Amino acid sequence: MAPPLVLDIDGTLTRADGGIDPRAFDALREWEAPIVLATGKAFPYPVALCHFMDISERVVAEHGGIVCADDEVRVTVDDASRAADAARAFVERGGQMGWGRADTVNRWRETEVAVRYDADEALLRAVAEEFGVELVDTGYAYHLKLPGVAKGDGVRSVAETLALEPADFVAVGDSENDVSTFEVVGESYAVANADDRARDAADHVTEGAHLDGTLEALAACRDR
């Protein structure tokens, strides 16, 4: 029997050159158990992906800052102003957010702030420390968020809504922001392109990278 899944998006459902790998659409639509998309992206992005994949809206967004399951949406951060203040200070001191004037990466973000990966990391880390916010490196962007907010907590919340245990889930991810998820689920897979922290925290590391690795993990947990 197929287990419920927690899946990261970037690096996990994508191609090596970026963008969702189209094979993910049929693979997830045909999965018989609940699927949770757990990501650092702003809330509308994984929700839209659920719509396009024709799967239920079960989402952990912004590293656990927003959780959605079975028609319930919960914002887990009471005050995101500290992250916004840190981002403002970063720009005032010469840093670049990197997303252009429209900044659609942050336009709908509610609980944290994302900065492009080619930003001044040293300056960003200094500002994060000064403002008491956590800097998360996903391999695709830097995220300024409040300490104590994590994907794993969002997974616990979704599991409770679905009347499941976190240990019932199998997770697949690729970066340090997936470690908290790996710590709460019953079984975890890091795809071959994962960073060292994700690889060290996972129960298994796939031979395949990106979606190839995810499909490898899904085949393994379906057939166990």
Rank of each mutant, 00 (worst) to 15 (best):
H210E: 10
T214S: 08
Y189T: 08
T206F: 00
W108Y: 14
V36H: 03
A150N: 14
A163Y: 10
A38T: 03
V191L: 08
D168L: 06
G64E: 09
D71M: 13
E176H: 09
V75I: 12
A126P: 00
L211A: 04
R109V: 08
A114H: 03
A201T: 03
V60Q: 05
E57P: 15
G186H: 01
V60N: 05
G64K: 09
L144C: 03
C68E: 13
E165I: 00
R58A: 10
E134R: 14
T104I: 14
A167T: 15
E216K: 04
R29H: 12
V185A: 05
G94M: 07
L135C: 11
E134G: 01
A163P: 02
L28W: 00
Y140W: 14
A2E: 12
D118G: 12
Q96Y: 09
S157K: 13
A198S: 05
G132R: 07
E134I: 03
V47M: 13
R93L: 11
P147Y: 12
Q96N: 14
V172F: 01
A163W: 09
D26M: 09
A163K: 15
D195Q: 02
F131C: 04
V149I: 14
A86W: 05
R74F: 12
E110G: 02
A2I: 01
S157V: 07
H143C: 04
V73E: 13
G173P: 01
K145Q: 10
R88G: 04
